[in-house]
Amino acid sequence: MTVKLGANRYGKAETRLVHVVKDGPVHHLKDVNVSISLSGDMEAVHLTGDNAAVLPTDTQKNTVYAFARKYGIGQIEVFAQRLATHFVATQEAIRHARVEIEEYGWRRQGPHSFVRDGGEVRTCLIHHDEDGRTTVVSGLKDLVVLNTTGSEFHGFAVDGYTTLEPTTDRILATAVHARWRHAGEPASYGTSYAQVRQALLDAFANTHSRSLQQTLYAMGERTLLTCEGVCEIRLALPNKHHFAVDLSPFGLTNDNEVFYAADRPYGLIEGGVLREDAPDAGFAWE
């Protein structure tokens, strides 16, 4: 029996890239997921393990970051064509390049603050006992928000295992999971929901953050001060880390413009804010 190599390709899948374009105090945001597949004269690597024709997938990832810095992203179709053309033109063994890009939409909330389009889920938790007592906890989850600047993190505790560098300028992003308790029944739960949601967004956009904990408290405080009838709010804020990519190996600078959006692990900040006269919550949160 004779066997032979069939169709094949290789590449770097799902390179997450967040690109910030700074136009003075107004920033513009592009958030994309780039997947690359290359094919061509790859018999040797499959049959004998000879890697001479193989452009490392790590190099493909670096090219995505470097091209974002050099050319910007613009229309994703143009960016994808630029990448595909580059790989075929510069690699003798490559006959075909496949580049797939997903773009995630953000709506502007302020000069450097954005709200992710889609993904938000409205929630509620109802308790009703035989004595006729009903408790209502409203909420939302997966409300993804991001500030491209206006966030710091320094002066933290250190020990022998600390490697994190202090920073006075970073991206702050989180997927808000909020639950709030009503002191009584509002005239409209829909109106109340909209008011709380807007209070959370306003506080996030307008708080100069020195820690995500500080931002959490500011979001809770603004909710209680502006949303009549809400007596307590609890928030869970995962820190969606964005790390500036080191482009120095390619002779490029990176003034907080090209980031790697990390998936995990992530910091998780949780806390509650309540009115001093808030009635006992009992088992409302369970």
Rank of each mutant, 00 (worst) to 15 (best):
V3H: 07
Y10I: 14
A13R: 09
E14K: 12
V21F: 04
V21I: 08
K22L: 09
P25C: 01
H28L: 06
K30I: 07
D31R: 15
V34W: 00
V34E: 05
S35C: 04
S35F: 03
S37D: 12
L38I: 15
S39M: 03
M42D: 10
M42Q: 12
D50Q: 08
P56T: 10
T59H: 14
V64I: 13
F67E: 05
G74K: 15
Q75I: 12
E77F: 15
V78R: 11
E92S: 13
R95T: 11
E103R: 11
R107W: 03
H112N: 06
S113F: 03
F114H: 02
V121P: 02
C124D: 09
C124H: 11
E130Q: 10
D142A: 13
T149P: 05
S151Y: 08
T163F: 14
L164A: 07
P166Q: 00
T167I: 06
T174S: 03
V176Y: 01
H177P: 02
W180C: 01
G184W: 14
E185Q: 13
P186E: 04
Y193C: 08
A203V: 07
F204G: 04
R210I: 05
L212T: 01
E228M: 04
I233G: 12
I233V: 14
R234N: 05
L235T: 10
A236G: 11
N239Q: 00
H241P: 06
D246N: 15
P249T: 09
G251C: 01
N256E: 13
N256A: 13
Y260L: 15
L274V: 11
E276I: 03
A284I: 09
E286D: 15
